[in-house]
Write a protein that binds this DNA or RNA. Structure first.
Lengths: 151, 151
DNA sequence: GTTGATGCAAACGATTTGCAACTGC
DNA sequence: GCAGTTGCAAATCGTTTGCATCAAC
């Protein structure tokens, strides 16, 4: 269960999901997914584009947007809440939650196994079916707290 | 403790917060805040603008944007996560959580008192100070589930 | 070969900004 | 009266779309 094997498993799973959805496994899609998997900083479409451009010089930004949109619908990636105007993405795999700094917009992941095991309220089933429940903590990060104090 | 009194209290609190922050209590700000308080559908800046335009014909859309931005920084309103491109807002008062439908983008509030009483993980204090913790449930609403089934 | 995917360029829409006139304190 | 706020118009920026070409199956 090394990191390498994990990634290979993810990519196999990726191809299967694409085929099941009737989508072609194109070079661009594969690389974009690989890049999202490798990223741990919730990159925007534009950030991914810049990183990928080195490997795929002919890639266009619209393809990144379109592909991320497709992946989001397949639950392969997840569009995350931000305080900026740009949408940000993360791979939809490991269970984690978000801390969002109101001062600088920084987004920090944290894990909370207690919450992950908690049973969701029953009345949710009246609203719809649940894919995933996430906690978003709004606050001020340590850096912003100390800079505000010294202001 | 009628609804009327609640609103009056909210508005008094509002004026106090503005004064404390060195902000003028203008007619526009008062009305925009009142409208957000009255709304229970997470309106966008544009939706608020249309509603307010009836009462304040001279109001401009940029003022609504600017004012909501200001309110957000003061924690008077809260910018909520959506799957649309428009930002949506809600008054920052009653404790609730969000169900977000991946199919139609609908945003439904729900309460979860058990969660509200839960203690947040200790390691959060290493990240920063917490204003509020909210749960975002991603899923598919009942309407979208049945329309997908009949498809 | 067919169908869906990509790249390009142009369009779009939400939000922001500079600036002069105005208004609350 | 002054500093902060508003309204207007123009600019900006992230994202989407139409269409011809191209690649996966």
């Amino acid at each position: 269960m090394t990191a390498l094997n994990d990634d290979q498993l993810q990519l196999q799973r990726f191809e299967q999901i694409c085929k099941d959805a009737g989508l072609k496994v194109t070079h661009q899609r594969l690389e974009i997914y690989r890049e999202v998997l490798a990223a741990h900083d919730h990159p925007s479409a534009e950030a991914l584009y810049k990183r990928l451009k080195k490997r795929l010089p002919s890639l266009s930004l619209d393809t990144v947007y379109r592909t991320l949109g497709t992946f989001d619908q397949l639950n392969l990636v997840h569009r995350v809440e931000t305080l900026e105007s740009q949408a940000r993405y993360e791979a939809f795999n490991s269970r984690h939650h978000h801390f969002l700094c109101k001062g600088c917009g920084k987004l920090v992941d944290f894990t909370w196994q207690y919450f992950d095991a908690v049973q969701l309220p029953e009345h949710l089933s009246n609203i719809g079916t649940v894919d995933q429940a996430n906690v978003v903590v709004h606050g001020t990060c340590a850096a912003c707290v100390s800079s505000a104090r010294s202001r």
